[in-house]
Write a protein that binds this DNA or RNA. Structure first.
Length: 201
DNA sequence: TACTGGATCCCT
DNA sequence: GGGATCCAGTAT
């Protein structure tokens, strides 16, 4: 498939601007086992501010730590972390260095390397539950802590946009599963493709 | 050195 | 609705 890779410039903006732009773009992970490609259908922005309120739902809210350090880097790298001891979540770091912002990839639609995705997930088919959640898509596309802090301008893991853009409607809602947050709970920073079956529950 | 809980998923 | 599973973050 023909595509053009995102460059450093694409990652300089605030996460809440990049998050909707990632919809319809392709997440590509080239490994020895397979080349995985998937169409991004759901994202969430984290970090930064909304109407002068700091995002208290972001990992970076309490300052830089060993785990969250990648979020504070300049945009254009990954931030992958372990969640609930068994799953991984993948983020795209955005904004200039020192401005901790990232976009969580919440759901994708498989495009290439589907047989390997099915194997990785121990699934029977490419039904929607193969990649309709952040933990599921990481397992399907073999994204683990090894892929943390990877340069997205390289050839292993990157974002590509199709040369023939597709059209869809974008829905914007509050983010999911951040009950611990205060004001941030209500930021309208979740974006997904209307009516796409791969959007998470 | 000990304790707590999570940007999830799957089964009941 | 609850268990799996483990490490970072925080408290002692």
């Amino acid at each position: 498939m023909k595509f053009s890779k995102w460059t450093k410039k694409n990652y300089e903006a605030d996460a809440c601007c990049v998050a909707p732009k990632l919809l319809g773009q392709y997440l590509v992970h080239a490994t020895d086992k397979a080349i995985y490609a998937a169409r991004i259908v759901e994202t969430e922005a984290y970090g930064g501010t909304y109407r002068r309120q700091v995002d208290d739902g972001a990992h970076s809210f309490r300052g830089i730590t060993k785990r969250t350090a990648p979020m504070f880097e300049a945009g254009g790298i990954t931030y992958v972390y372990l969640i609930y001891g068994m799953y991984h979540c993948m983020n795209i770091v955005t904004a200039p260095q020192g401005n901790a912002q990232a976009v969580l990839i919440r759901a994708v639609e498989p495009v290439q390397g589907i047989a390997a995705m099915i194997e990785n997930r121990n699934a029977q088919s490419a039904a929607v539950n193969l990649t309709n959640g952040p933990g599921k898509l990481c397992r399907a596309m073999d994204i683990t802590l090894k892929q943390n802090r990877i340069d997205l301008c390289g050839n292993e893991l990157f974002i590509a946009h199709p040369l023939v853009p597709d059209t869809f409607s974008v829905v914007c809602t509050e983010r999911i599963n951040i009950e611990y947050a205060g004001m941030g709970k209500h930021f309208p920073w979740r974006f997904y493709m209307k009516d796409n079956p791969y959007v998470s529950k």
